[in-house]
Design a binder for these strands. Structure first.
Lengths: 342, 342
DNA sequence: ATGAAAGCGCTAACAC
DNA sequence: GTGTTAGCGCTTTCAT
């Protein structure tokens, strides 16, 4: 193993020496302090530029006890929904002069725990997080509290953690989706749910069940399946359902991504959509419009959730204390070809 | 405006006081230093846990001059390709005990400049970056050099910046795509390119042109279009092409995302693919398989590029100096229905 | 095996 | 308007 080099960075004392002034003057000049003469400011800025000076966040945040950094933990950066959320956060953050650092748990608790450690160690001013599908205990989030780092959770949240939440009405999402399918005449509706230990998925399931109950439709027990929505799980579910005595005539799936796979597999099995089955996805994605048939969806407003999450964390930081606000963002039923009335 | 609170975090001196020992002992115990007795280590670790202690990266990196952080700058986190790259980086980073912080330029130079500042200020141990579509001057990346932060660039790179590069052979990508279309009998091939001030796009265009030349096919000047591949640009291009005297019978587009839009617009204009035109995208995405017709593509191995990029940055960090390695990753022609031989 | 002290780069009183 | 000094939380000689 080779040596870790010491990195010689340019510091304010380099600037100070070159100009033969005090480091505090340099610091003030760089921070545009009003008591520093324009002449000095100019000199300092010029030398800073010349030397390629960049502030050390480590040093300055050590004394200021604030990093102007917001940490974001999402399961997958590549998913359209999380990408939207990130964009919403970044848009607002920029407005307010905050920088955003993004971490990915990859739907993996171990990784999520790592990320909480990094963000803690970095002493970000605030955290915005969405739980991984695997996350059961939320102990690792408690460290933020101890370090007085406020945290807002969105989408897949835990009420065991203090702080604002930004969510949709997941019960409503499940209800509206089921209701729509019932209205177009479907009677044997299956629900491919994410892990129901996650509250969001549990709530959707609830809404789904209640819609059936209200319309006095049967809930075939095997038609309510909690899984991790992987391609493998989807294939297994489909095999079971479509080979059973009672086939579903509609499927609600709890992620946009799974809808695409579902449709592709079903088509390859020889089924026609929406003639044989209707499909609707909880969560929307651009590909829902590209696939044949286009896929109906419940839209979850990612960007808006991102913006709201930043607003919440910003308030916490400014007030120096967490609220327990729960902000519920509106969903939207998007009817496309996969659930057209026959 | 309200007050910025001081955040009282738990420090090693809290632990030291509680145990009535020196902070240096605590530090050693926490770092598992061999000279510390097991008894002391245990005591320290217990109290650390009890108090919810988390190291301050700011403080420790200040003295160690190393953060164990890798900064990544990508244009869009939501794009499948960049998400793959990020996953590749993270996989390797985890292996080696590095943490990754992800920044998004949003294809925007101003934002990109901001990100370089953040990463500089954070004194990450290394940077992995892909230029935004807008980036012309790369002056803002020079600061990394001055701070002795190594940087590897991938995909859209600039050779004005020192350091390793991880790329594909873009010339080949353009060539192979064109060649494939020629082989299936296409003669009026259009190329919707990204901004050709970006070397990758320029190279692809070169490969495209050379393939035509080699087969003595005409290049209609209006069929080579450099734009930012937005939906608006695509519609404009299509309007121009399809209303012209000479219509293209094939289109190569320089991003996966644009292929989906292209296809959708073309279909809505009443054209049949691949009967009227063939399409191939430079870069692949899962949706290329969902859309009808499925879209041929040149696959660019994102995850592999990510892994290689981390390997390169890791070497730089360990050796304490940048190489100028250029690592070229293999591409792959994926023939799907949009370019099937008629 | 542990402690004392210096110092990383910066900011914030407090002087003048 | 600028300098002096202390100190943020940590690691690292150098002692013992």
């Amino acid at each position: 193993m080779t040596n870790k080099q010491k990195k010689e960075s340019v510091t304010i004392s380099d600037i100070a020496k070159k100009l033969n002034i005090a480091t505090s003057t340099v610091s003030r000049a760089l921070n545009n302090n009003e008591k520093i003469s324009e002449a000095t400011k100019k000199k300092v800025q010029d030398v800073a530029l010349e030397l390629g000076y960049e502030i050390s966040l480590a040093a300055s945040s050590l004394v200021k006890k604030s990093t102007n950094l917001i940490g974001v933990i999402v399961p997958k950066v590549g998913s359209e929904f999380y990408a939207d959320v990130i964009n919403g956060i970044q848009e607002k953050a920029q407005e307010k002069g905050y920088k955003v650092i993004i971490c990915q748990s990859d739907e993996n608790v171990k990784q999520e725990i790592e990320m909480t450690k990094v963000l803690n160690a970095t002493r970000v001013d605030g955290v915005i997080a969405c739980l991984s599908m695997e996350t059961k205990s939320v102990e690792h989030f408690k460290a933020f509290e101890k370090n007085n780092i406020p945290i807002v959770m969105f989408d897949r949240v835990s009420y065991d953690i203090n702080g604002p939440k930004v969510v949709i009405d997941d019960y409503e999402a499940g209800y509206v989706a089921a209701n729509h399918l019932i209205k177009i005449g479907r009677e044997n509706i299956a629900h491919l749910s994410g892990n129901t230990q996650v509250k969001a998925f549990e709530d959707r399931t609830h809404g789904f069940k209640d819609a059936l109950k209200e319309h006095k439709l049967p809930l075939h027990p095997q038609f309510l399946l909690s899984c991790d929505l992987s391609e493998k799980d989807i294939r297994t579910a489909l095999k079971m359902w479509m080979n059973g005595a009672q086939k579903p005539d509609a499927i609600i799936t709890s992620s946009a991504q799974s809808g695409l796979i579902l449709t592709t597999v079903l088509k390859s099995m020889g089924y026609n959509i929406p003639e044989d089955l209707s499909i609707i996805t909880l969560g929307n994605t651009a590909s829902n419009e590209f696939i044949t048939p286009t896929l109906s969806a419940i839209n979850i407003p990612g960007k808006e959730i991102g913006r709201a999450s930043f607003d919440e964390i910003f308030t916490c930081i400014k007030e120096g204390k967490s609220s327990n606000n729960i902000s519920v963002k509106p969903i939207q039923l998007l009817i496309r070809n996969s659930s057209f009335k026959a």
